[in-house]
Design a protein around this nucleic acid. Structure first.
Lengths: 240, 240
DNA sequence: TTCCACACGTGAAAC
DNA sequence: TGTTTCACGTGTGGA
């Protein structure tokens, strides 16, 4: 308690002291030590070096103090402790962010096609979440999305007659799975008639109706299965 | 690019240098300067002071480096810049946290009958947001429920082969339409394989896959059409 | 007294 | 070129 107050006071008074020194031109120490002559070039260089160094230290302390201000529950006022607490706090925020994100996805998926939602079919994530991803998780995004497996859990390709295939699959709930699926169909020159996505207990159940050009249905079936399975981790190919 | 790498290298090699010096007992500087005698108490005190100070600096640098690791998009490797970026990042996370919180509240309120809402959201935050859902349907609900027409706009019953019928219909967006549809199928002894509801511009597009007992498909088609049409206003029967 | 954290001035190194 | 950043050793003051 009083420890924190006191150390905080130290920070402030040190900053103030440095600033006043900066304003004073710190002539005091120079006169006291008598080392440097103002006329000598070395002395001038050293004096500039000294004052700039002093400013640097001052700035760094200000930053550190500002850092302390944005981090709650600071235990000690140590320089090292401040940074340590800041690190732990950021890690905590990261953890929480993931939790909340998962919660939002779950909430959203709980009612993917609600009566009131008239236009949220374009993506599986809400607008705000997507913008958030773009903003903060730059490196996370590059790591964890797009070229990662869709974690296929079940796949069923059925011929329904009339050159129509029904692709029904279950995968874990993650982003871009529908995009990848569409890319597969596009690469196979298959037209999507309609698609249905159902979110349930961390899984995505998808049913896609496919219109095929006249082709051998068995061959087409295998083509689709292999293409979708290829989306998955190649190390654990899905056996249908 | 190379700037960052180089500065990073500096950090590391400085740390290493300090550690090795620590192991060496930094006798080098002592011998070089010749200031301190190992036997003199002042020398020993200074050496301890020096090494502890060195450790302190080292620890602080390590912390700073660790802080840099948890903050994405670090621009410069400056000590001051690292702290500055960390501050801005934390502030950004705070901002985002508020937004996401608001979004969660909105989502939760938007879907009171969600799968995951085992709580009492339906009664808790009602007024403002229940208006969202119920405000529009409230009077419809009380006035036009149950025995009122579903306002059928379009109906298409198609035979898909394998005793499977696809019923596709469009009606105005109001409650209980799906219930009535299900009642129709039940009355005709038809099994629903899967159903898809799409909300779009005030209308409900429904696609229902029906499994029929072996029966004449044309007759069944007409049966379904008439039964569903009967749900509509008898004054304006839907002609398909 | 020792211990700990700090600010300071300084020379060097990088741009 | 000088400007900036850094680690270092040192002195100081509080526990």
């Amino acid at each position: 308690m009083e420890n924190i107050d006191e150390e905080c006071k130290h920070f402030l008074e040190n900053s103030m002291f440095l600033q006043t020194q900066e304003l004073d031109g710190w002539g005091f120490d120079e006169a006291l030590s008598g080392y440097y002559d103002s006329s000598s070039p070395d002395g001038a260089a050293s004096s500039k070096n000294i004052v700039s160094e002093r400013n640097r230290r001052n700035k760094l302390n200000q930053r550190l103090f500002a850092l302390r201000a944005v981090v709650p529950n600071i235990s000690k006022m140590d320089k090292a402790s401040i940074i340590k607490d800041a690190i732990e706090y950021i890690e905590h925020l990261h953890e929480q962010e993931k939790k909340i994100e998962a919660e939002i996805v779950e909430l959203e998926s709980g009612m993917p096609n609600s009566i009131n939602s008239s236009y949220d079919f374009d993506q599986e994530l809400p607008v705000l979440l997507r913008s958030k991803k773009k903003r903060t998780d730059h490196l996370y995004d590059s790591v964890s999305s797009r070229n990662y497996p869709i974690e296929l859990l079940e796949l069923r390709v059925t011929y329904m007659g009339d050159n129509t295939m029904v692709v029904s699959l279950t995968c874990s709930k993650r982003t871009d799975t529908m995009v990848k699926l569409c890319e597969v169909f596009e690469s196979l020159n298959l037209k999507i008639i309609t698609a249905n996505i159902t979110c349930f207990s961390g899984r995505l159940l998808k049913t896609v109706f496919i219109q095929a050009n006249e082709e051998d249905k068995d061959l087409l079936q295998i083509k689709i299965q292999t293409a979708i399975t290829a989306l998955n981790d190649p190390l654990s190919p899905m056996s249908i």
